[in-house]
Amino acid sequence: MHEIPEYALFEVREPLSHTIPFVYNSPHSGRIYPPEFIAQSRLEGVSIRRSEDHYVDELFADASALGAPLLLANFPRAYLDVNREPYELDPRMFDGLLPPYANINSLRVAGGLGTIPRIVAENMEIYTRRLSVQEGLDRIESVYKPYHAALRRLIARTHVQFGFGVLIDCHSMPGNVRVAGSNARPDFIIGDRYGTSASAELSRAAVAIFEEMGFTAIRNKPYAGGFITEHYGRPSRGLHALQIEVNRSIYVDEITLEKRADFALVVGAITAFMRQLAVYVAQFATDSALAAE
């Protein structure tokens, strides 16, 4: 069996008391690279890190101080991507036949960004050789499934405690992203799967909070939310999932990956956003738009 990394694969940062109906999740900010993975890769240094959501766990670190748990990955996205179906696998990456239940035809697989990615950003190939099918399946069993089990537990606990819940899936996006039809750069994109993963009122409120702070914020384009947002968002059951994309260029140098001088200011703005969104939800918790139908 493929060796499981010896570090903690992920962490749950619990609040002293779970006082707000939120769960925060940072699935792509992991930056502990297993030595055996590095040995398989043709990339190293900054290059292998291009797929990270750089420091997003730190941007949203105050979630626990505000009363919500924060789940964060320590393993890197290039090693395994939990924001995919469990078996979105590229047969070109493996020696042997994948199981029949593998989704080998998704657009994400075609683009090299399946559950076990073939490339990092800028279309750089990761591996020097094909992987064994068993190694791929072992990663899913030992990393993907425990991560989602932890996320499901947090969401279920929140739903039971408060009668509804809000999952915030935290990500970053490249600095060259532009608003469709213009040259405007969005600082934040709120994804709600075009209104299917969360109430429209909630996602509009999230956009408005950032705009009131002076940021450019838009909904859904070009990032409407990935597997996590789509899979866990069930507004009719009182479970809302929003994806937040933070423009990397406002807080990190995208070439060196060094934090910018105003990194702390961005952290402060995101903390203020989390606090204000919690106030909004508390004020409208009994509305049919948030509670289960």
Rank of each mutant, 00 (worst) to 15 (best):
R139Q: 11
S199E: 00
G136D: 14
I119A: 00
E125P: 14
Q134T: 11
R185L: 12
L131C: 10
G165E: 01
A205W: 01
D169I: 00
F188K: 00
I209M: 08
D169K: 00
T158E: 14
H171C: 10
R157E: 13
G181L: 02
R139N: 10
E212L: 07
V120D: 12
R185W: 01
N220D: 12
M213R: 06
V143S: 09
N220H: 06
E141F: 01
I155K: 07
I155Y: 11
L151T: 04
L151S: 10
A224K: 08
I189Y: 09
T196R: 15
G214Q: 04
I155F: 06
L107Q: 07
T216D: 02
S203I: 05
A217F: 05
R139P: 11
T196P: 01
T128F: 13
P117V: 06
Y147R: 09
E141Q: 01
N220K: 05
R185G: 01
S203Q: 09
R204K: 02
P186C: 15
A156V: 12
E135H: 11
G111I: 03
D187Q: 03
G175M: 01
R118I: 01
R178V: 13
A184M: 08
H148P: 06
A121R: 12
V207I: 02
R178T: 13
Q134W: 03
F210T: 06
T115V: 02
R118D: 06
A205P: 04
Q161K: 13
T128S: 14
V160Q: 14
P222W: 14
S132A: 12
Y127I: 12
E125L: 15
D192T: 13
S132D: 14
S203R: 07
A149C: 05
A224N: 02
S199K: 01
A205G: 00
I140N: 03
I168D: 08
E212C: 06
Y223V: 03
N176V: 09
S197Q: 02
N183S: 10
H159Y: 11
E141S: 11
G175S: 12
E212T: 01
L167C: 08
R129K: 15
E211N: 04
G191N: 05
Q134F: 14
I189R: 01
K145Q: 15
F210R: 00
M124G: 00
I189Q: 04
D169Y: 04
A150S: 15
G111K: 15
L107V: 10
G195E: 01
P146I: 02
R108Q: 10
A180L: 09
Y127W: 15
L113W: 05
N123R: 15
R204F: 05
S142W: 10
Q134N: 12
A217Y: 06
E122V: 12
G175K: 12
I209N: 02
